[in-house]
Amino acid sequence: MDKPALAAWLGAEITGMALLSGGAIQQNWALDVLAGGQAQRWVLRTDAAATLAVSRSRAEEFHLLRAAHAAGVTVPEPLRLCTDRSVIGAPFFIMRRVDGLAAAHRVVRSETLAGGRQALVAALGRELARIHSIVPPRADLPFLGEPASDPCRRFVAAMRVLLDAGRLPRPMLEWGLRQLEISAPPPAATVLCHNDFRTGNYMATEAGISGILDWEFAAWGDPHEDIGWLCARCWRFGGPGEVGGVGPRAPFVAAYEAASGRRVDPARVAWWEIAAAIRWAVVAIDQAERHISGAEPSLELALTGHIVPELELDVMRAVMARAA
């Protein structure tokens, strides 16, 4: 990282800089600066070496954060975007640094975070309702494209394309996709879906949610898609609650419905929960393949492949429970 070039672009003195988290896709740097004589705590977010083709660019993520911030979603306030690669070698943006706990295994074990389990799931419901208040068309979000006419069928088709590109047949995932296909609900509302709204991707303090993070998969879709992802068994991290491992569904749904004016259809949520296990399995297969192919040797990627069997079991259990 070229600190003098960065300081010049920022027009600020950098007093501290440390890598916060080296995700597989993005890097986050904690940045302490003196700007206009004021001490500021920022985060610099940029691309890591390997960027998933499906994930949004830093510039797009910056515009999504701005839209979310304006809609009242609790996000780290986006400050400045730099698309000039000559500054640090890759596009990046600056946002305010927020305090809080994100680590999923600790979030699901806490009885007091954000005021306790019931309060935390209610707050998640309100945050998601604000995200879903963003609806097409939006001139500031042109990169989201036209909404799909049928998000459920689009999902099934997209997963099949990815499975066909894989090395191995995946009969349990095929089984789940076929069951989803023949039970797909008709298209409903179209909203901005965060598409990775789960425990681990928000920060919270004892006082409440302090930031919804990781917007790189956001897209137009069915609001139930985000609810299914949040509630899916695979994102509970061993926690006791059906909503993100944190708490029960009723206060989450009540808060979401009150804040959004939308009704939550449990059958649609169940559909998207099966879809969530399939989507995570397909991503996990792809991540493991980066290790297996030799492109990016990594123990973490290697172990991600071994998540696939329990996702397949989630799919089989859920499909058979629905049929029974």
Binding site: M172, R178, P309, E310, L313, D314, M316, V319, M320, A323
Partner: peptide, 30 residues
């Protein structure tokens, strides 16, 4: 092999058995 077909239940049971066997290696806690 949709629901209602002759071997739907047999194949569902076989796939579930395979998923369980794979979990015995990759994720026995599941």
């Amino acid at each position: 092999h949709d629901p209602g077909s002759a071997d739907h239940d047999r194949i569902a049971a076989s796939l579930r058995a395979l998923a369980e066997a794979r979990c015995r290696i990759s994720a026995p806690k599941a």
